[in-house]
Amino acid sequence: MLSIEGLRVEVEGKEILKGLDLEVNAGEVHAIMGPNGSGKSTLAHVLAGREGYQISGGKLRYLGLDLQELEIEERAHAGIFLAMQYPVELPGVNNMIFLREALNAIRRARGEPEIDALGFMKQVRDKARELNLDEKLLKRSVNAGFSGGEKKRNEVLQMAMLAPKLAILDETDSGLDIDALRIVADGVNLLRSPERALILVTHYQRLLDYIQPDRVHVLAAGRIVRSGGRELALELEEKGYGWLSEEAAA
């Protein structure tokens, strides 16, 4: 589904990703771990098409498409979703209206009929209930005045509604207490399916207690320095990142 080869990315002239390789197939859950500043969030944002990142080398293929050719919204239409570490507050923009417009924009782009108001309401209420997200938040402005946990649950709600093929969750666990983490993880687990791939970008192993990955990769100094199964995450938990960074430098 996603194939990254030798990806090099610069931000303001500084190279952050230095030749990154990654293969993700449909149905798989990958965890990308690594110390702060290793380039995890850069990778997440580059996949979503955020401006300000210069791709100076390598290939980014997604479902046979060259991702670099696609605008931000075209990537969303093609099924890419980024759950953000810091979801933006949009005062005055109603959560329901936003979500319905987003869903219909994606449906239109795919040549599917738009969803009507009633059908949408029912669907969004059901999903909100699954995520234990207060229905009142649906009627409020997007993320405005939401707590950290509410913002993250709102991201997962959007993900559930937009039903992406490739979902990237950028530090979705940060700032969550254990209860909120469990709710978010349950929501994410509901979305696991043979057609869908998930990339979890996280600093800590604890998210992986709730969402079990198929593959774990360690990103250090702009490269994947080690890949393995779930046991790699546990090893990291025990030893920290220091030994890997030293290996990478050597």
């Binding site: 098409g49 955020r50 401006e51 931000i72 949009l90 005055g92 936003f98 924009a105 937009l162």
Partner: peptide
């Protein structure tokens, strides 16, 4: 720009994003 990126990453075109953000600004 962060708000525009957020909306576009959910599938909205730049003009749709601008419309929603302007309406949000005016909504008060």
């Amino acid at each position: 720009p962060q708000a525009v990126f957020y909306l576009r990453s959910r599938g909205l075109s730049p003009s749709q994003a601008r419309r929603l953000l302007c309406l949000g600004f005016a909504s008060e």
